[in-house]
Write a protein that binds this DNA or RNA. Structure first.
Lengths: 162, 162
DNA sequence: ATCTGTGCAAATAGTTTGCAAAGAA
DNA sequence: TTCTTTGCAAACTATTTGCACAGAT
């Protein structure tokens, strides 16, 4: 019974993935509320990823105007605890959330300091570095974050003069 | 006249470096107030680096009890603008500040998720990765941050069972 | 029917800002 | 003396929390 037909959805979403995430909530005995469903949909719909709580609140409120910002925060926290989402901090004072993807290979973030847009870059180069650190520093690495700050292609073109 | 003898300093500090930083303030026409001097001293004294504003406030208040937290923030902001300090965000909800060092090679941060301590790791591996990104993504990189999260040596030893 | 989840409003924590007074040049 | 800098308190921003009610199971 978890998979009711999706209404009010503006684009195509991956129904299998949605179904799967709903099941994971079920398995943990979490209730499948309309707020949670709509937040999951919004996350699946989002192309760029990297949504902040406020971003999501704005999106989700269109279809569920009575939803509270606190609910969005609580749901994101819940999904992050379940490893459905990753919290990301790009240093702009708000946390952003990204659906946990393929564990196979990492991606890093390119953050444009001019327009704030976040790009991704696939790479596995860090694995060997991690192993070196584990040995040399005796530090058991659980996670890493690599961020590059700079000027994106688009903003470079707009730079005529300073 | 910038270099008055340092009193109330608990440890040895690099006087040349202190003198140099004072000069840089002068050159930018910034006033050399006792608050600024004492904050610079505290930064030079600190071994671990990675002090937060509140950390510094605590240290500095011992010698200058009337100092305001806002002054600490404003001074740190000023020093960061002058590239004397680097702002660092380790995801614990407060910014930390580190004296800008040798530009020659980078160091990365190992952040213990158990005790919060921050270790450093020297490495230049990222240069080739940066160049690859510049070309492939046409993204002009200005800065990067690489953080590893995990369990430090000390906390691993304390882990008897879960 | 039960107990989790929600909306609201108030609380928090780190940081920033307005303003009048202090003080470096 | 002049104009920057300071201390205080209030403002801000993102996020969290308490509580009574709504609602999923």
């Amino acid at each position: 019974m978890p998979l009711k037909p999706l209404h009010c959805v503006r684009g195509p979403i991956n129904l299998d993935r949605f179904h799967d995430l709903c099941d994971r909530l079920h398995q943990k005995e979490y209730k499948l509320t309309p707020q949670r469903k709509i937040i999951l949909q919004a996350l699946l719909l989002d192309e760029d990823g990297h949504l902040s709580a406020e971003d999501l609140y704005g999106i989700v409120k269109q279809q569920h105007p009575e939803i509270g910002l606190a609910t969005v925060y609580r749901t994101l926290e819940l999904l992050a605890d379940m490893d459905i989402l990753q919290k990301m901090d790009f240093g702009d004072g708000r946390l952003r959330y990204e659906l946990t993807g393929d564990e196979a290979h990492h991606h890093h973030h390119l953050i444009c300091t001019q327009c704030g847009k976040v790009y991704e870059f696939e790479d596995d180069l860090l694995d060997s570095l991690e192993q070196a650190i584990q040995k040399r520093k005796n530090f058991k690495i659980v996670d890493h974050q690599l961020k590059f700050f700079g000027i994106c292609h688009h903003c470079q073109n707009q730079e005529t003069r300073d």
